[in-house]
Design a protein around this nucleic acid. Structure first.
Lengths: 248, 248
DNA sequence: CGTCATCTTGACCCAGTTCAATATAGGTGG
DNA sequence: CCACCTATATTGAACTGGGTCAAGATGACG
């Protein structure tokens, strides 16, 4: 069943040799089921693992001294979680399940071993981390410089895109298994204000909602008000992996 | 003169073998002097290089469709600039000199070659990028969840720390060659409000200023109000580089 | 069928913005 | 060395997006 690992995040730009795929599939421990609200790893702990999310949603969050929380990322299946903290003595982010989830824990040593053995894996990892960094830059720009409406629109479009990529289809309707408070913590807003923005979006005919399902009714207009940049991944990464020796 | 390259950012956690140091020093082109306000690389361009900052300050910024700007990082000597865009078809960030600066341009191919040849360099690079990612997460939390006063305090402490690390000493006074508008763009504030916060800090006896020089008068109190987390770098990275074969 | 979490909505408030007017200081050409 | 010009800094007054507080409503679940 490990053959069904969602590894798409690893070959977004780089096609890995089969041997590396094999190694990725075996570097993680047996998958664990965790309940909603369960904490995979708390900030402050010594980082000894990273985590491959197989199913469900997980939030990565940072706690401020005053108790405020910033959610740094809503993780979807296929994401590798907790990697930023690998450079620190104590983990910076807490990983909390937003839904029941299935996770494979990966010892840092196993990850490190693969990283050092396979330069192609290392290259894929580098690009993947840089992509996350760009996403963080974009959200910083959104939180620092755009009004609440734009931020919510951007989040909805981002999720639709990422969920669509997971299934390989265009999505205009999806489950959003996240409370409005969590959305607020992700966008630097209050739960109350997130609620009001949703109302505006519904009243404006931009989205529809029943319970946790969201339907994007007018993607074009949403995109216009989201102030979000399109970020096309590098088409040619031969400067990194070379053209010879690269797997077809 | 290449021997004076500030390479400290590369061995924060990992000691590189001399051969790698040698390669780093030769991967960049001859240093170029650029004037204040000069643009090293504009967002939207095809990324073909990264840049090693040898001297001076450079800002990395993202432009929003509405024309608002978010500065993602104030870069100091020793920083490797423009690397996030290596994963994209078009650069996400613009690099602008804040002071006259000296920069060595590094072709992506040269960087890629070193990355693929030296797993130790790759490892150092991975950790370095993850550190930047954590810094971005922390600033996102600051911008999303803390008041202006805390953000400014955090910026001042961060710069004092980074400049201190450059010189190898504790710093409580330094030149801040940055306009208040740029500080605002970095912290998600208005130039006007940055000015008011500075006034509060001065009136409160927390800092002193003459022209662009800032003196931190009460670091303890500044730290308390900054809501900033201490981020100790990983002490042991043997899970990555191993214990055998690692250079002493 | 009670309980707890979440959502909704209203009323009011405030941190930070906007607008505008005035200083200051380099930098430049003469 | 001076006069001028443009970028930056400063400060006041008025405004507003989003926060805070508080009171229901709704729904999932044991």
């Amino acid at each position: 069943m490990l053959h069904t690992l969602p590894l798409h995040r690893f070959h977004e730009s780089i096609v890995l040799p089969p041997a590396d795929i094999e190694r990725i599939q075996t570097m993680g421990e047996a998958p664990t089921q965790i309940a909603r609200h369960a904490v995979l790893r708390r900030e402050g702990e010594t980082p000894r693992h990273i985590y491959l999310l197989l199913d469900g949603w997980v939030a990565s969050s940072v706690l401020l001294p005053g108790g405020e929380r910033q959610i740094t990322k809503f993780h979807l299946p296929g994401d590798l979680l907790g990697t930023p903290s690998m450079c620190l003595a104590r983990a910076a982010d807490t990983l909390t399940a937003l839904t029941p989830a299935s996770v494979s824990r990966v010892p840092l040593a196993a990850f490190g071993d693969l990283f050092m053995r396979s330069s192609h894996f290392a290259a894929a990892m580098l690009l993947s981390v840089q992509r996350e960094r760009v996403a963080l830059m974009d959200r910083l720009a959104a939180v620092g410089r755009t009004p609440a409406l734009a931020r919510v629109a951007a989040l909805l479009l981002d999720l639709a895109e990422r969920l669509g990529a997971l299934g390989g289809v265009e999505l205009s309707s999806f489950e959003l298994p996240v409370t409005q408070e969590q959305i607020g913590d992700h966008l630097g807003l209050t739960a109350v204000h997130v609620n009001r923005i949703f109302r505006q979006l519904v009243d404006g005919g931009l989205i529809a909602r029943h319970r946790q399902r969201v339907e994007l009714l007018d993607c074009a207009r949403l995109k216009a008000m989201s102030a979000r940049q399109e970020r096309a991944p590098a088409a040619d990464v031969s400067w990194l992996i070379g053209t010879v020796g690269a797997p077809a």
